[in-house]
Design a protein around this nucleic acid. Structure first.
Lengths: 212, 212, 212, 212
DNA sequence: AATGAATGAGCGTTCATTCAT
DNA sequence: GATGAATGAACGCTCATTCAT
C-alpha cells in the first residue's frame, strides 16, 4: 500500500524534483510503519532505491525530511477535506463533515494517521495545522449561535486531541464507525450543542464513507 | 528544581537502596527534560554521579528504569489524590476534585507532568494508570444518575486526553487556573452534565490550591 | 552431579582451606558445563555461595584457578588409575587397563572429561600429565618385547590423542563401550602388537566397568 | 610471513571485493597467531588498516568471518591436494600422498596449520572437512583389500587427529620429515596394513617435497 | 576474612556523514 | 547528480578488579 503523495504532486517535474519526491515518499512509508522516531536515513534511501549519499543532495538532516513529510500530509489532508465541503453552509454540518473526513482519511491511510498522531505530540506548529480546518467553522458556528465556547488554540487543541484519540484507538483496534460517531458526539458536547439535538445531527451527517 | 521522589521514600534505607533511588531520580529528571524516548543510560548514570556500569547492578535495560519511573509517579500521584478525597461522596464533586488535584500536582512538579504526558502517548498500560482514578467515580456517577455516558476505556482515554492537553498547555505557557477550570468544564460537558449546572459546580469545587 | 574433588581432599582443613576448596569445586563444576574459556569469576563465586571479592583472597586471576582445577583433576585421575593397577605385571594388560580406566573416568564424570579435553588442546604441560600414566608401561612393554615403537613424547601425544578423540566422541554421542574397545585396538595397532592377538587381548582386558 | 589467501584469489576484483579479502586475510593472520577464540573484531579491522565500522559492511559477526576463513582454507588445501594426486590409483599410495601433502601444506603455511588445528577442536563440520579427502581413498583401499577397518567418522576422526598432532608438533618444534613419516606409519598401522610392508611403502611415497 | 557496591576499561554494534569516483 | 565504501563518534553492555565496611 505504497502511497505516492509527493511523487503525485510532481509527476511532470524535472529529475531533481523526482528524486526528491522519491525520498519523501519513502520516508512517508517508513514513518507509517515505525513512527517518526526510529526511521533511519539509510532506510529511507534504500527503500527509495537510491544510494546512501544521495540523501544529502536534498536534505541536510533527518529532521528536515521528517518535517516536510508531516507538513506535506497536513496540506494534503486539508486539501481533501476542503474538496468534500463545497456548498456546506451550516457550521455544525461543516464540523461534523470535516471531523469525519479527517478521521476517515487517517484510518484509510494508516501512514498518514500515524504521522498525524506523532506530529500532534511533538510540535505546536503541526498541532495548529491539524486543527486549522476547524477554526473557521467554529467561528462560523459562533456567529450562527450554535456553540457556547471560548474560541482559542486551547479549545482547538482539546478538540484535536479528541480526534487523535479516536484515530489512535481505531489504528490499534481496527476501524469502527461507532468510535468516530462517539468522537463527534463528544465534540458537539464540548461545543455546547444541546444534548437532545446531537443524535439526529450525527445520524444525519456521520455516514459510512465510500472509501475502498 | 530537582525533586527526589524515590530518594524521599527511602531516606533511611541501606546503600543499595539509596543508589537505586539516585538512579531513579536521575532518570526522572532527565525524562522531564527530554521525554522518555531520548534518555540515554550513560546520561542517567552521569547525572547521578555514578559510573556507567553501576546502572546494570540495578536495572537490566533502559526500558526497565523508565517503566519504574512512570509507575512510581503514577502511584505517588494516586496516593496524593486519594489523600484529598476522603469523605467526598458526590460523584461530580469527586471527579472535579480528582481532576483538579491531578492537574495541580502535574504542574506543581513539572518533572512529573512531563512524565505523565510522555507516558500517555506511549503505553496503553500507563494510560490506564493515568485514568484509573476516574473509573470508579464515573461508575458512581452513573449510579447517581449524573452522567449520560458509555463507560469504557475509550471514554477514559478521551477524558484523560483532555487532562493531558490541559497540563501540557500550562507547562508550556505557565500555570493558569482558568485553563484547569475550562478542562473541568469540558469534562462535565463530555459526561452529559446539564450546561446550566456546570458553572456553579466548578466555582464551588475547583478552587485555587494551597500549593507552594 | 556436583563433585567435590577439592573439598573432599581437605575435609578437616581450616576455614581458609575450605573456602579455597569451595572456589575450586565451583570452578570445576562450571568448567564442566561450559568449557574452560567462558567461565567468569563472578560465576565461580556466586556458584560457591560467596561474594565477588572473596575470589581475590585466594587467587590472583582466572588463569590461576583454572590451571589448578586442571592439575587437580589430572592428579586425581592418575591416583584412581594407579589404584586399579596394583598387581598387574604385563605391559599390554597395564596399557589396556589404564586406558580403559582413563576413558571410563572421563565419561563417568563428564566434568572431568571436558577439562581433560580442553587441557589437552591448550597446554603442553597438561598433555604430559594426561599421558604420564602411559610412559612407564610403554617402557615396560619395550623391555618385555611386546611393542615395536620409538618411545618419546610424540608417540605419547599420538596415543593421548586417540584417547581424547574417544572421550570426546562418547561425551557427544553417549557412552559406548564399543568405541572404547576400538580406541584400545587402535592403540595396540600403533604399538605394533600383532593384529591376530589383539581381539583376544581386548576381550579379556576391556570389560564393562562397575561404575554407577 | 603474511599470506594473502583471499587477496590472491581476487587481485583484479573491485574495491568491495578487495576490502572483503583484506578483512579475511587479516582474520586469518590473527587466528594463526592466537587461535580462533580470542580474535577480536577491532583487532581484525585495525590489522587490516580499516575503521572499526567497516567490518559490518561485510560480515554480521565474528563467527561469520571466522567460519569463512576456515572454509576458505579447507577448500584451498583440498584443491592443492587434488592437484598432486592425478593419476594415482593405489589406495595406500593415495592415502600416503594426501596425508603428506596435507601436513606439508599446513607446515609450509603456518597460518593455515594453526587454523586447521583450531578448527579441528571446535567444530564437527570442520573436522569433516579436514578428513574428507581421506574417506574416498579408504573406501577404495577396502575394495582393494588393503585395509582391515570399520570405515566411519570415528575412524576418520582418529586418523585426522594423528595428522593434527603431527602438524602441531612440527609447528611447535620445527619442520621434521621424520615426524611426518612416523605419522604415516601410525596411520598405516591403524588401517591394518602389515607391519612388514610399511617401511618400504613410506620410503617410496613419503618424499621430501619441493616446497619453498 | 568476607562482603558486595562501585568502578571503568574494553568490546560489540549502529548509523549519520563524508568524499573520491 | 549519484554512488556506496569508508569512517568514527557514540552508545550499550560486560566483567575483572578494587576498596571501604
Amino acid at each position: 500500500m505504497t502511497v505516492s503523495l509527493f511523487q503525485k504532486a510532481n509527476q511532470k517535474a524535472g529529475k531533481r524534483e523526482r528524486t526528491r519526491a522519491a525520498l519523501l515518499d519513502s520516508a512517508l512509508d517508513l514513518v507509517a510503519q515505525q513512527g517518526m522516531e526510529t526511521v533511519k536515513i539509510s532506510e529511507i534511501t534504500k527503500h527509495a532505491g537510491l544510494a546512501n549519499g544521495t540523501f544529502y543532495n536534498y536534505f541536510t538532516d533527518r529532521d528536515e525530511i521528517i518535517w516536510e513529510v508531516s507538513y506535506g500530509i497536513a496540506k494534503e489532508i486539508g486539501r481533501q477535506i476542503d474538496e468534500g465541503m463545497v456548498g456546506v453552509d451550516d457550521a455544525i454540518e461543516r464540523v461534523l463533515t470535516a471531523t469525519t473526513a479527517f478521521i476517515d482519511i487517517a484510518i484509510d491511510q494508516p501512514e498518514w494517521g500515524a504521522v498525524v498522531i506523532s506530529s500532534n505530540h511533538h510540535t505546536t506548529e503541526m498541532r495548529k495545522d491539524v486543527t486549522r480546518f476547524l477554526r473557521a467553522d467554529l467561528q462560523l458556528g459562533l456567529e450562527q449561535g450554535h456553540f457556547s465556547i471560548t474560541l482559542d488554540q486551547y479549545l482547538l487543541d482539546q478538540i484535536g486531541s479528541i480526534i487523535v484519540v479516536c484515530i489512535r484507538t481505531q489504528l490499534e483496534e481496527g476501524a469502527d464507525l461507532n468510535l468516530t460517531r462517539r468522537a463527534c458526539d463528544y465534540i458537539l458536547r464540548l461545543l455546547g450543542v444541546a444534548h437532545a439535538d446531537i443524535p439526529e445531527l450525527i445520524a444525519q451527517h456521520v455516514q459510512p464513507t465510500a472509501t475502498s
